[in-house]
Amino acid sequence: MNTKTRNIIGWVLTAILAFAFFASASMKFMGGADAAKSAAAFGLTPEILKMIGVVEILSIILFIIPRTGLLGTLLLAAYLGGAIATHLEHQLPIFAPVILQCVVWVTATIRFPELSQRLMGRTATV
């Protein structure tokens, strides 16, 4: 795969992730009866739910910016790890956070070749 195709795929996947995380965060900010009911089932107050939304937004913004993308990757991975653990704790399906986690890592390895090199144990070619 050439560099141009790799960049296009990386940015398209980044846009999909940004849409998903911004939509999720906006639902946390908007509140509503359904969001409050879901949060209460997890033992979360509306204030904590809004803080989680802030963490989501900050993480995806860091992921989008190329210079801070690796930090954003780690923060999104940690966030989604918490989501998976919470879903498991409450006997909910884990498909959505697991799929998002996979898309985050695939996107990160496409956008950041140095991450791919580290994960695959390859040395950088000079």
Score class of each variant (00 low, 15 high):
Asn2Ser: 05
Trp11Tyr: 15
Val12Ile: 15
Leu17Asn: 11
Leu17Thr: 01
Phe21Ser: 06
Ser24Lys: 01
Ser24Thr: 14
Ser24Met: 06
Ala25Cys: 07
Ser26Asn: 13
Phe29Val: 02
Ala33Arg: 07
Asp34Ala: 12
Ala35Val: 09
Ala36Gly: 01
Ala40His: 02
Ala40Lys: 12
Leu44Tyr: 13
Thr45Arg: 05
Thr45His: 02
Thr45Ile: 08
Glu47Trp: 09
Glu47Phe: 09
Ile48Trp: 14
Leu49His: 08
Met51Asn: 06
Val54Lys: 02
Glu56Tyr: 00
Leu58Ser: 10
Ile60Asp: 04
Ile61Pro: 04
Ile61Met: 12
Leu62Asp: 00
Phe63Tyr: 08
Ile64Gly: 01
Pro66Met: 00
Gly72Ala: 05
Thr73Pro: 01
Thr73Asp: 00
Leu74Trp: 04
Leu75Glu: 04
Tyr79Glu: 05
Ala85Cys: 10
Thr86His: 04
Leu88Asn: 08
Gln91Met: 12
Leu92His: 12
Pro93Thr: 11
Pro93Arg: 07
Ile94Thr: 14
Ile94Gly: 07
Phe95Ala: 14
Ala96Val: 12
Ala96Ser: 13
Ala96Pro: 06
Cys102Pro: 04
Cys102Arg: 02
Val103Gly: 03
Trp105Asn: 09
Arg118Gln: 08
Leu119Arg: 06
Thr123Arg: 15
Thr125Pro: 01
